[in-house]
Design a protein around this nucleic acid. Sequence first.
DNA 1: GTCTATAAGGGGATAGAC
DNA 2: GTCTATCCCCTTATAGAC
Lengths: 211, 211
Amino acid sequence: MLPTSREKILDVAEARFAQRGYAGVGLREVAEAAGLGKSSLFHHFPSKAALYGAVLDRVLERIELRMNRALEASRDVRAQISDAVIGLIDTLAEDPPAARLLLRTVFEDDDVSPGEAPELAAADRRLEALIARVARVITEGIAAGAIRPISVPDAIQTLIGATVYPFASGEFGEKLAGEIFSADAIARRKREVLGLIEHGWLRPIPRGEMS
Amino acid sequence: MLPTSREKILDVAEARFAQRGYAGVGLREVAEAAGLGKSSLFHHFPSKAALYGAVLDRVLERIELRMNRALEASRDVRAQISDAVIGLIDTLAEDPPAARLLLRTVFEDDDVSPGEAPELAAADRRLEALIARVARVITEGIAAGAIRPISVPDAIQTLIGATVYPFASGEFGEKLAGEIFSADAIARRKREVLGLIEHGWLRPIPRGEMS
DNA sequence: GTCTATAAGGGGATAGAC
DNA sequence: GTCTATCCCCTTATAGAC
């Protein structure tokens, strides 16, 4: 079960783009790591932007698959959100370059704008649909009284920051909190986000101790 | 009060590095935007890494100044954390490229490792001291019973993700939640983070409604 | 302190042989 | 589908005139 040439290229490119960014990666480097000459890359992908788009769309597809499963269930809103967070964290943990690639993509909106390649436009649509779905669930949760009346877009931004960023934080994160992708760190991240959503950080003030 | 040549260069470089990243920015672009020829840049900064380090250290200095003021006060731990969050958000809001520059720096640990230039090493030390200070406050808060027994490093990662990332999210963030640096958006971000710390997202279940 | 000129190398992308 | 060779542009950095 050797990977096809195309998948091998995508694997290599995902790791390189995540580590060094769009501008920092040369196609020569990608091609040779995949066992090809530089020019042969252009037979599989017509441009650097198209390659990046294909890498990005594949990552988003994996996340979409897992999160949609959590959000499809017609259960309690709390459980939907919890499972979506768990699904997102698990996907990011199984594909270490993914988190950094996603955040880099957000930052590099010049080089990887949807107009640069059709693959980038496809990834853009996929992400937009996923976010719309999460927004709908939170909005319904507020309407049903299960969630405080928070700002939904701001809540989604917090969710991204609290789940995606730590898995993208590399050496900095490891120095701060130890191995990022260890089973323990993954479990701690789930507890951190779920606990924060449910209770916040502060300890409830026991009855009779109100000042 | 025209900026000195050095400060003008730093202003231009901060904006460019934040927008396109370390590898994506050419010194020619920076020099000409600052009104110099490319080679003249090397008179002020001996290398690209040194310039980046100077930019980064200046950003961290501003953040340190504001956060230390919030953390120095010998008040209630809750107030220290709230004021530190508010100070961090205000600093990021007053210096729009800062958030993106900081997160890019975390990601680009290859190009901007402390060994590349003394300015980068200085920035590294500054950041380390700031984080240690925040960690101390949270740890004391837990010991005093004001904060739930959370993992301190994970809490700091969440704090970074929930405060820095949204101000770095650029076009993506604007599409999701509107203008990032409007007074309203800044106020909403403060409410979001402080509310999350204090209560979480979920609505407390009213008495007698426990299932 | 700024400039021109140059060095030495890498970038993305294309043409055409095999 | 992979290769070699090539095009043209940009990169960091240095040398030396003014």
